[in-house]
Simulated scan of single mutants.
Amino acid sequence: MRIFRNSTAEYLLLISTAYGQLPYRVLTFLPLPYENVKDAFQKLCRAGYLEIVKAPGHKSFFITDAGYAAYCEAIRKSTKPQYWDEIPNKPEFTRNAQKAIRLSRINEAQMFFFFLGQTSYQTSLEIKREMEKKDARSSDSLKYSRFVGKIKRGKQVSLIYHFGNGNQRLNSNGECNASVWLREEDTIPCEKIILTETEKGLVDILEYSLWALNKSSDALRHMQLNYYISYDDNAVLLPLSRDAGYFAQAFGREDWPQMVRYLEDGARPADGIFLSTLDGRWMDVLVYLSKEHDPDVSVHLTIWDFQLPILTELHRRGLLPEGVPCDGYHISDYCNGIQPDLV
């Protein structure tokens, strides 16, 4: 198969070389017509340049030796010799289904934040290698954790977790190792970020957190629990989508906290209950849902446009009452330097 310059096939080989093994759904991240991308992907697979790993609920792909050689040859034909040394080494891959799930999630998170979010990102594999230089055993549990990387905003650092298609249990040793690594850095911890493949996965977390919110700490102490949002750990929840990528861009900006406060102050009513998820966190909504309220007291909810499907799923499950007034802002406006407008 011939790889033409600036073709969709060349672009797919570039992405596969730059990020390594990836889940099939990241093809929707690309700024190209999906039908064209799907057609080029199938041709590359038939040519033996890409290979697929399948398991129940999982489909990932990686670039083969033949695909990497074809990509390098295409780059050498289309660029000057001084740029040949900039071609990345062939990335690691695995045909083992369970390892493929873990590896592709790490790479998907990197692509989400670096490619869509355009923000500084370091993967958990890179962090693990740093830890191994100091103490080989200190990083052992990271491979069992859902921890996939970190982003920085100034000196503030957020740890990133990928939960796949629903709520999951965090590995306590992996959590401990990640926390120890964070304390050794010259950084300030800020919000943890939880990624899921779909909005339904986020609602799984919210529904489970709502159940846990009504339990005492003593009642939860001896139970093995999936992840739930608490007052102490009010994480940011994000679906892995192109629209949510704008949030990742905005979240990494120095003026992000000030912008959120500005928008909330403008949307806050003079009286009644005000709820906002503009910072990506849902604790205010969970607390509201956990209590009975006077129906005569007005409620006002402010969200981003990419969070609307989350509200739809909350309504479908009967967790959020009908008729709650809602304002939605376009997150893409903020990333493009425009005052965010209402949906």
Rank of each mutant, 00 (worst) to 15 (best):
L210Q: 01
K192E: 10
L240W: 03
G272P: 07
E191R: 08
S298N: 04
Y228L: 03
E197K: 09
D233P: 01
D279Q: 05
L210E: 12
A270K: 15
Y288L: 05
A235E: 04
I205H: 12
S276V: 02
P257A: 06
P295Q: 13
S298C: 05
L206Q: 06
A212W: 01
P269C: 06
S290Y: 12
S276N: 02
V285S: 02
M283T: 10
W211D: 13
Y208G: 02
S241Q: 10
N226M: 14
E264S: 09
C190N: 15
K215D: 09
L206H: 01
N234M: 06
L220Q: 15
Y227E: 06
Y246K: 01
T198E: 12
V297W: 03
G245D: 13
D218I: 14
T277D: 00
L278S: 00
L301D: 00
N234R: 07
Y246M: 06
L210W: 11
D243E: 15
L238N: 00
R268Y: 12
T277N: 10
S216E: 08
F251C: 05
I273E: 01
L238G: 01
A219D: 15
H293Y: 09
V297F: 03
V299M: 10
T187N: 04
M283L: 14
G272M: 02
A219N: 11
I273L: 02
E254A: 13
V260D: 05
D296F: 12
R261W: 05
F274S: 00
I273V: 09
D218M: 03
S298P: 00
S209Y: 10
K215H: 13
L225N: 13
D265F: 08
V299Y: 00
T277V: 07
L286F: 03
K200G: 06
H222W: 08
V203E: 05
Q224F: 08
F251G: 03
G245R: 10
L301T: 02
E292Y: 07
K215Q: 15
V236W: 04
V285W: 01
D233M: 10
S209W: 03
E207T: 05
R242H: 11
D265L: 14
L286D: 00
S216T: 15
H293W: 15
R253C: 02
A235L: 11
S298A: 10
S209E: 04
G280Q: 02
I194C: 04
Y231G: 05
W282E: 00
I273P: 03
G245W: 07
D232E: 13
F251D: 01
A267G: 02
L220G: 00
M283G: 04
E199C: 09
A248V: 06
Q224R: 09
C190L: 12
E197G: 01
A270G: 02
L263T: 00
P269F: 06
P269W: 04
G272V: 08
M259G: 01
Y262R: 12
E254T: 13
L238V: 06
L289Q: 09
